[in-house]
Simulated scan of single mutants.
Amino acid sequence: MESPFRVWIDEDIADLIPGYMGRRREDLANLSALLELEEFEGIAFIGHSMKGSGGGYGLFAISEMGRDLERDGGLRNGVLVKNSLDRLEHYLNHVEILIKPCER
């Protein structure tokens, strides 16, 4: 079955992707813990970081989810944060990363 999230990554950065994705999984765990504690400032901070980093790896959906988490944390809205975390978890569990040769 084909993944609903297919992302093509330049081969020049392919070796960086496993570490980047691992850090996003760590973010997911940290965000869930922050939500339990209602630490919305921390959620907004991590969301801001994700917003700034995803596009550099060609993972624009992570940037979009980071933007949402930054907004939701700023609104101090636990329901919205939980929805964003569910979307992030689903994405991380289903994204298919494909490598494309660099154009030279």
Rank of each mutant, 00 (worst) to 15 (best):
E2N: 11
E2R: 14
E2Y: 14
S3N: 03
S3D: 05
F5A: 05
R6G: 04
V7D: 03
V7I: 08
V7Q: 05
W8S: 11
D10S: 10
D12L: 08
D12G: 02
I13P: 00
A14T: 03
D15V: 14
I17L: 08
I17H: 06
I17V: 12
P18A: 00
P18L: 01
M21T: 10
M21E: 03
G22A: 09
G22T: 10
R25T: 06
E26R: 15
E26H: 10
D27L: 04
L28Q: 05
N30S: 13
N30C: 15
S32D: 10
L34N: 09
L34G: 07
L34W: 08
L37Q: 14
E39T: 10
F40P: 06
G42D: 02
I43Q: 03
I43K: 02
A44D: 00
F45K: 13
G47Y: 02
G47K: 05
G47F: 03
G47M: 04
H48E: 05
S49H: 14
K51P: 02
K51H: 12
G52W: 07
G52D: 07
S53C: 12
G54E: 02
G54M: 09
L59S: 01
A61L: 14
I62W: 04
E64W: 06
M65L: 15
M65G: 03
M65N: 07
R67S: 14
L69I: 13
E70G: 04
D72P: 05
G74H: 08
G78I: 01
G78E: 07
V79P: 00
L80M: 09
K82E: 11
K82F: 08
N83R: 15
S84F: 06
L85P: 00
D86C: 13
D86G: 09
R87Y: 07
E89C: 09
E89P: 03
E89I: 00
H90Y: 15
H90G: 03
H90T: 13
Y91W: 13
Y91M: 07
Y91L: 05
L92N: 00
L92Y: 06
L92K: 07
N93I: 08
N93M: 09
H94D: 05
H94M: 12
E96V: 10
I97F: 02
I97N: 01
L98H: 10
I99C: 01
K100R: 14
K100T: 09
K100L: 10
P101G: 09
P101R: 12
C102S: 14
C102Q: 11
C102D: 13
R104N: 12
